[in-house]
Amino acid sequence: MSQPSHDAAIGAAPHGAAPAAVEGAIAGASIGDRIYRVVTTAFAWVVPLLLGLIALEVVLAAWPAFRTFGVGFLTSSEWDEVRGVFGAAPMIYGTVVSSVLALVLATPLALGVAIFLSEFAPSWLRQPVAFLVDLLAAIPSVVYGLWGIFVLLPVLREKVMPFLATTLGLAHTPFFSGPAYGPSMLAAAVILAIMVLPYISAVSREVLMAVPRSQREAAMALGATKWEMIRDAVVPYARSGIVGGIILGLGRALGETMAVTMLIGNRHEISSSLFAPGYTLASVIANEFAEATSEAHTSALMACGAVLLAVTLAVNVIARWLVWQVSREGK
């Protein structure tokens, strides 16, 4: 699209052949249009500038910690306010484990919902179910946390954890050992799974619906049952978009703060057991910010935020790119 021809509509003549000025009725230019365009363009620039400013400010806040601890900040698991030594390894571990576990729990369910809504659901059921699932995304994190503390934790402590450890006999494995307090990596993962489910299912549903009719009809014409059509034609076609949706869900899970802070137990230790408390990058900031008195402690918390920003930024760019590819092909 050539810019000059577009500008032509605003005032100047589109061809320079006859520069003879026009007098009388049809002369004049619209200043208003220029102002309007400048103003909307300025508003549009806010988005990239804001993103840049966010990155800059977060890095500035984290800078002292990075300068003091270097790469060791990412690998050390020592976190001692008194001695002023900080390492984020347990938080990075907790963030990754809780998020990945949440995805493992949420993905099959979210895909099931997406396929149900895009392929199987009778039309009278489609709208209400989609609405309810979308509503899960609208519930504030702090409400999930509240519900988690008073409803989910007792159920996990009294039913699920004993069932996993004793009934299934998994207590001797490193993943389900130790006492079942309640606040734990498992609790955080379960609440995160519920929270990211609507994101994964919404994106998946969108890309599944974008699969061209010809793909479905080709499979149907070959005599495939509906399920075979979905498995062999629809899902493979939408695969990269679905992966994008899962990564998007990962981005959400990595940065979720309040619900995780309220359920994960908040302890600076790496434990293989999912029954043990842990910490995430986001929850350590939320939990310790108010009590951080030293500059070093605050900066270490901000450094956790910077790591989180870098990771979620990368994850989001990848996810959006994947989803865009698919929806562009579909159209």
Binding site: A12, A13, P19, A20, A21, V22, A25, I26, A27, A29
Partner: peptide
């Protein structure tokens, strides 16, 4: 009316109003 609507200085808004 004898004026080139594409001439430099001509305003499409004025043209469209007529």
């Amino acid at each position: 009316d004898g004026h080139d609507i594409y001439a430099r200085g001509a305003n499409p808004i004025q043209v469209r109003r007529r």
